[in-house]
Design a binder for these strands. Structure first.
Length: 789
DNA sequence: CTGTTCTAGATTTTT
DNA sequence: TCTAGAACAG
């Protein structure tokens, strides 16, 4: 039953739980010799009677068992949705360790997200009961970073390097454009970023790129890319793409290193293989391909029907080419679905059958036929949310479903708003997966930037971010002058902002006022830096908040936002403590001593690599997420919302429809539909507000691709939306007589209560008003909004 | 140098 | 509609 008493969880990316069960190894526990080839196959075969099998191999179907036992040589498993591929992978790894006596350290499993890695680790642990050692399980990025830390002597980067996320990357690109004297209006930083990342997905370095002969912009891009790469090295920072590229180059160019990792990771597994990109493919072939002296013990698991990251460089070619790269590869299909009803499987299969570029694979199930697909036609997005929430309550009340049996899936995060509103109103606890990452919040990024500067003063992006945060009188012009110093071509000119800061202070180039401010800042940072080596991160963290006055600034503000920012900083404090606890627990004093200076680096690395979908799922809450975020999950009941042309499939009206993109949208639809076990709802609205404007939408083409006999259609008429139980839309005016606001007019707001208009600005029809509420609170609103359309 | 207002761009999806 | 960067005034 739904617990109606629970308070709403507030949604948003909570960071809790991210670090649970995530154990990095620092003390090297691996000997670097080549293990003897494992000839000693255990006597388990496909014919072994079920009751003689170890538990983890029982109850697998034939192809699953085949895939699990085919441990040597290249294997590609084409696993349909819900066909038990994680089960198979777990069984396979357990079998390697338990029966074939392969050391867990010789096994690598690559997953798409950190959350998936955590789950797999848990499942392997369960299968092996009491095993102490775990195989390496992680994302491409986390594994690559680990390797880079270990092999830093071969890299242009020095040890405590930092990782730049997308927005850091964008800042660096801006500063590069600036340095090159390019106008950001003509060369958009975003376009440069897209270009750079595209290059990196394919593993193309600046000098390798061949611009088309007469294409000036490509030539310019190439140049910017080169300068950007240099700036990365100067900042001692890696962006996401670079993490993989540089690891690839390390393996390609350093044979000894490559050999070592080939023998370290003798059995490699890759989940969600359909979403790997070129550089990940190259990385894998470095470790496994015969061409590079690899062992070919590679097992990839994927489903081209679920490939939904083409826009990020995922290359379906990786699936199609597998058999060429690894001749003699065994291809195994898992086609039996254990998750969904017949109806859902048939509907989803019919939809995906409209794609032309796919390998034939037929999903089937022994599950009962189940309910028809519920197609709900509503008037607008408010009604959609209202109806879905009411239905969720009904299912809880009448059929005993609990909230975590259900999920709402949408195409874009922006669609979550309506649902949040109604969920809050109805006091149903919910959790949004994805959205704004905890670590992307401004205050968290600020403080992390400080921490990054502490371990790596070369990090100019972070330094520029915090040099005047909170405001300490170091303004734009000063910063610009500092940056200019780094652009100088003199032989011993500083290359980093930090260097520029130091030399300029040494050479007394500033007037007294600026000089003092800068040197104050410098000494503060230096002092904290010196404490870093001996003290815990949590202690430095406190001094940081103290010395910079960050929290006291926030306290001064006294707004609700500031309050929640302070709370977030406290949450960060908890996370740091939790992290230190986890790493230092059970360690000897000596070990702690060596560990301490590394703590901050590891902490920052983790914060950069967790994604917004890595949030732990909490107990009985309704889950909402994008269709991309639902990959790998399943729910008894699924609501897919906003099935409208333009929104889903998402198209840009001014651009021609790209057939390939349309097929990706369709795969996304397939992924969403196959999340449902028992019941699937699909809603579409007649019209909805997009960017504040009403748009009329046709029902999504995907709806018509489902056979009619599988669908139960419901059309909700407008009157229902205005029924007494429907909360009115936000505001109501008491005693309003006209369409225009006047000063002194009384306003009732559902959240803030009663107030009166204090000020009116803006032109007729687009007035903005300031309302002063009884509580003394002053808020600004759009009058149009306030007058109820 | 700071705080405010103005404008443009974004909403497709993320390691 | 909202946000973040840019431009402007104090």
């Amino acid at each position: 039953m739904i617990d109606f008493e629970d308070a709403p969880s507030g949604g948003g990316g909570r960071a809790r739980g991210i670090f649970q069960g995530h154990r990095y190894q620092f003390v090297e526990e691996v000997e670097w010799q080549v293990a003897p080839p494992t000839e000693a196959r255990a006597e388990i075969t496909l014919n072994t009677p079920e009751d003689e099998l170890p538990g983890y191999l029982q109850n697998l179907n034939l192809p699953q068992k085949e895939a699990a036992l085919e441990t040597h040589g290249p294997v590609m498993v084409l696993a349909g949705a819900g066909s038990g591929k994680t089960r198979m992978l777990t069984a396979r790894i357990a079998y390697l360790i338990d029966c074939l006596k392969i050391s867990p350290y010789r096994i690598l499993a690559v997953t798409f997200t950190n959350k998936a890695a955590m789950e797999m680790r848990q499942r392997i642990g369960k299968a092996l009961q009491h095993s102490v050692a775990y195989p390496d399980v992680g994302t491409f990025h986390s594994i690559a970073v680990k390797i880079l830390r270990r092999e830093s002597q071969h890299l242009p980067f020095t040890q405590p390097f930092v990782i730049y996320d997308d927005s850091d990357q964008l800042s660096l690109i801006r500063s590069v454009l600036n340095k090159l004297g390019l106008d950001t209006k003509k060369t958009s930083p975003k376009a440069v970023q897209a270009f750079v990342n595209r290059m990196k997905c394919d593993g193309v370095e600046p000098h390798e790129f061949q611009p088309a002969d007469f294409d000036r912009s490509e030539k310019q891009m190439k140049e910017i890319y080169g300068v950007y790469q240099k700036a990365l090295v100067d900042s001692n920072a890696l962006d996401f793409g670079e993490i993989l590229c540089i690891t690839y180059r390390l393996f390609r160019d350093q044979e000894a290193v490559r050999k070592r990792y080939q023998s370290l990771y003798q059995f490699i597994h890759v989940d969600e293989y359909q979403d790997t990109n070129r550089i990940q493919y190259l990385l894998l072939s470095m470790l496994t391909s015969r061409k590079w002296g690899g062992h070919e013990n590679l097992c990839v698991v994927g489903d081209e029907d679920q490939s939904i990251y083409k826009w990020r460089g995922a290359d379906i070619g990786n699936i199609l080419d597998f058999e060429n790269e690894y001749p003699g590869a065994k291809v195994i299909k898992l086609e039996q679905n254990y998750r969904s009803s017949q109806t859902i499987i048939r509907a989803a299969s019919d939809v995906i059958a409209h794609n032309t570029e796919r390998k034939r694979k037929t999903l089937w199930t022994e599950n009962p036929e189940g309910d028809p697909i519920q197609r709900i036609h509503v008037v607008d997005e408010r009604m959609e949310a209202q109806w879905v929430i009411a239905e969720i309550q009904r299912l809880g009340r009448e059929q005993g479903y609990s909230l975590n049996d259900m999920a709402i899936l949408y195409r874009t995060h922006a669609q979550s708003r309506q649902f949040e509103d109604y969920l809050r109103r109805e006091k149903l606890p919910y959790q949004m997966i994805g959205g704004v990452r905890f670590y992307d919040r401004k205050e968290i990024k600020d403080i992390l930037a400080y921490l990054k500067v502490l371990i790596n003063p070369s990090d100019s992006v972070s330094l520029a971010r915090i040099i005047n945060v909170p405001a300490r009188g170091i303004g734009k012009t000063t910063l610009e002058k500092l940056e200019e110093l780094t652009h100088s071509k003199e032989p011993d000119a500083p290359t980093t902002l930090w260097g520029a800061l130091k030399t300029s202070l040494d050479q007394n180039t500033w007037n007294a006022r600026v000089h003092n401010k800068l040197s104050d800042f410098l000494t503060k940072i230096e002092r904290m830096r010196s404490r870093m080596t001996t003290e815990l991160v949590s202690d430095v963290y406190h001094e940081l908040l103290e010395a910079t006055g960050y929290v006291s600034e926030l306290k001064k503000e006294g707004t609700v936002e500031a309050e929640s920012r302070i709370e977030n900083l406290e949450e960060l404090d908890n996370l740091i403590k939790e992290f230190e606890d986890e790493l230092l627990r059970g360690k000897t004093e000596d070990e702690c001593l060596t560990l301490k200076p590394q703590l901050l680096g590891i902490f920052l690395e983790r914060t950069s690599l967790v994604s917004s979908t890595d949030d732990a799922m909490e107990g009985s809450t309704l889950k909402m997420m994008t269709l991309h975020g639902c990959k790998g999950l399943e729910f008894p009941i699924v609501f897919m919302v906003g099935l409208e042309e333009g929104l889903f499939p998402s198209t840009r009206p001014w651009e021609e429809v790209d057939e390939e993109e349309m097929e990706e949208e369709r795969r996304l639809c397939y992924v969403g539909m196959t999340r449902a076990e028992q019941r699937l709802y699909m809603t579409h609205a007649n019209s909805r507000r997009v960017w504040g404007q009403f748009q009329i939408h046709e029902p999504s083409r995907f709806l018509s691709e489902i056979p009619k006999e599988l669908v139960h259609q419901i059309r909700l008429i407008p009157q229902q939306a205005r029924s007494p139980m429907a909360p009115s839309s936000g505001f109501s005016l008491s005693g309003s007589s006209g369409k225009h606001p006047w000063i002194g007019q009384e306003i009732r707001h559902p959240q803030y209560g009663i107030g009166s208009i204090h000020q009116v600005t803006g032109s007729e029809g687009d007035e903005r008003v300031v309302v002063r509420f009884k509580s003394g609170l002053e808020k600004k609103f759009l009058a149009r909004f306030l007058m109820g359309e």
